[in-house]
Amino acid sequence: MNIDFKGRIALVTGAGKGIGRCIALKLSKLGAKVFAISRTESDLDNLKEEDSSIETRCLDIGNWDNTRKVIEDIGQVDLLVNNAGISKRQTVLEVTEEFIDEHFDVNFKAALNISQIVAKGIISRKGSGAIVNISSISSTLAFPGVPIYCTTKAAMDMLTKSMALEFGPLKIRVNSCNPGVVLTPMTEKFLVAQEQKDALTGRIPMGRFIEQDEVANTVAFLLSD
């Protein structure tokens, strides 16, 4: 399959590490002008060293108002990947309001906030576009120790369906990508022991974790015509 994003402008959040970084590099390779968002400047510098054509913005997307300003300043965006997310351990009995707010601010509210800005821009230009939300298998399959993360991903799935319903007639396609375990810097924190990894791969028919590039390829397909 030949995918060509020449002339298209893409925005990827959480592009400093892991899946987001891989997606940003993939879209750039396929011809898109990419804007990469991360809250860690050193990660963005490293990304820029690998692909100097990528534009970077250092931003904590958990800050609603500041995020709106930065995204609006970027201007035209045709393709959006809401990838940024956090996952910290705290059980239902331990969880605090601050912990809940932190996860929803980044994993859910930021995706809605940025999607609203991008969608309004596409509509005002009478253009067309596509949005991919990076959700997770944990939106439907509970994992121990991370109930709030799982809940934010379930919310992301319903937001995706609602956005697809609302934006479809306006020439904006919306999909989600729900990977299982991908060995990124974030998941490596949780899967320290080999026994943990073996327990998970034992439940996967192919007997291995998903590669980051496989997620990036799926996202590129969902963004393509």
Rank of each mutant, 00 (worst) to 15 (best):
E102Y: 09
T67N: 07
T218Q: 08
G145R: 03
A32N: 14
F167R: 00
M206E: 14
G202L: 14
T56D: 09
S139D: 11
P185L: 02
S139G: 09
M156E: 14
S38M: 12
N113H: 08
K161S: 09
S42W: 05
F209M: 13
E50A: 10
R68Y: 01
S224H: 06
A164Q: 04
V77S: 04
H103L: 11
R68S: 09
G180I: 04
T56F: 06
S28F: 11
Q90K: 04
D101H: 14
K29M: 13
V70E: 03
S176R: 03
I74Q: 05
I54G: 00
I19T: 07
G75V: 06
S87T: 11
G7M: 13
A84H: 01
Q90V: 03
T218A: 14
M186Y: 01
E97T: 14
N2R: 13
F167G: 03
D225F: 15
Q194H: 08
G207E: 09
Q116C: 07
C150N: 12
G75C: 07
D225R: 03
F209R: 01
G18W: 00
A110H: 00
R208Y: 11
K48I: 09
N175C: 11
E98C: 05
T13H: 04
T184Y: 03
K161C: 07
A193K: 13
V81M: 08
K17T: 10
C22Y: 02
A10N: 13
A216E: 00
R203V: 12
V132A: 06
Q196W: 10
E97V: 05
N113F: 08
T140I: 06
R173K: 14
F221C: 12
L44K: 01
A110D: 10
G31V: 12
A111N: 12
V146A: 13
L165F: 11
S115D: 02
D73K: 01
K33F: 09
L27V: 14
K189M: 13
M206R: 06
P185D: 12
T152L: 07
C177M: 11
A110R: 01
T184A: 07
E97S: 06
K153F: 15
A84E: 07
I86N: 01
A15G: 10
Y149W: 10
A10R: 03
D105F: 04
D4K: 02
S135D: 14
M186P: 00
D101C: 04
I71F: 09
G85A: 08
V92L: 13
K126W: 14
T13Q: 06
F104G: 02
E72D: 05
L222W: 12
K88T: 12
D78F: 10
D43W: 03
Q90A: 08
R125H: 09
G16W: 00
G7A: 05
A84S: 08
S115R: 00
F221I: 14
Q116F: 07
I134M: 09
R8K: 14
E97K: 05
N66Q: 03
I117D: 12
E102D: 13
T56N: 05
D157I: 05
K120C: 11
E41Q: 08
I74Y: 01
S128M: 07
A220P: 08
N63D: 15
I204W: 06
E102R: 04
N63L: 07
I172H: 00
L25Q: 12
G16L: 02
G121F: 10
E41C: 05
A130G: 15
V174G: 02
L223I: 11
N46K: 06
A220N: 02
K197R: 11
R68D: 10
I134V: 15
T140M: 07
I210M: 12
S87H: 04
G62E: 04
